[in-house]
Design a protein around this nucleic acid. Structure first.
Lengths: 148, 148
DNA sequence: TAGATAAATGGAAATGATTTCTATTTATCA
DNA sequence: TGATAAATAGAAATCATTTCCATTTATCTA
């Protein structure tokens, strides 16, 4: 998609077929994916693509705020980041580590709703804000700041 | 501390010197600690304590909701869990991965305040609710449920 | 439009946090 | 106090993630 081309350009990232393919996959399947899953999807269309390349690119895209990274109990998960989807909520079972996605907002209400809907018990919550700290913000180019 | 003794009892966990020591360390230093840091602290007072033991216990205590686990970009972090401290907020820089703790609440306000105070840019947030899913809840003993 | 250059890539190998295994020790409960 | 299930130590294995280095590629300029 040409949009992805432009996004990479704006962030001063080289436009490579691999990067475009990664963005394509993440934006098409708007869900949480591990680097390995992204890689397996890529291999369907591309003969040669190394797992390290996927890791490198996911990290690079995440650092630029183009995609988002979520911290799972065991592995890293990435998802396509777009303005209309600035927050993600999940419920993590402390005991079995199952992660369930949540599609509605408002913290106290969420908590009560989750408990009802999932028949579970919410013990604590973590609000994790992702962004760019002052140092990194200063290093960003004028151009790519427009995207933020 | 005798309180920790009681907590372990209520959760049907054997009361061992190691477990008490781990709880002692986490409750004394109320901050995020990696398993390795906990282990290094333990070794000051205990001659023989293995790192796997620390991992096992932190996980066990976390599964019981006695301590909490936080998902860091790179490693797992644990902190002592108490009712007066049911939520934790942090700001994670997408670029350099620095994690900064936040001590105040209210999501939109947080976002604006963070940006001002840290001179940063918040791009997205994740609300992570920790608790026990219906399956695990069902398995818990009556007795330990009182703590939740 | 080709050549120079810095960045991206593949593949193998290294790293390092976390887990597993097994024999031994220990807490608990009757 | 003895039986038993759970906890522990220490070594070794696992496995996600990163690094290394030689090769390829995107980009920018002449």
């Amino acid at each position: 998609m040409h949009e992805h081309f432009m996004i990479l350009k704006r962030h001063n990232l080289k436009v490579t077929p691999k990067r475009l393919a990664i963005l394509e996959i993440l934006s098409t399947n708007q869900c949480l994916m591990t680097p390995e899953v992204v890689w397996k999807n890529l291999k369907v269309k591309m003969k040669k693509i190394g797992l390290p390349t996927v890791y490198r690119n996911l990290e690079e895209l995440s650092k630029n705020g183009i995609i988002s990274k979520v911290f799972h109990p065991d592995r890293k998960l990435y998802y396509y980041f777009c303005k209309s989807l600035q927050h993600h909520h999940h419920f993590v079972c402390l005991s079995c580590q199952r992660v369930e996605e949540i599609n509605f907002c408002n913290i106290e209400e969420i908590q009560r709703s989750i408990e009802d809907k999932l028949n579970s018990k919410v013990l604590s919550h973590i609000i994790q804000l992702n962004g760019l700290c002052s140092n990194c913000l200063a290093k960003k180019s004028e151009r790519s700041l427009k995207d933020l």
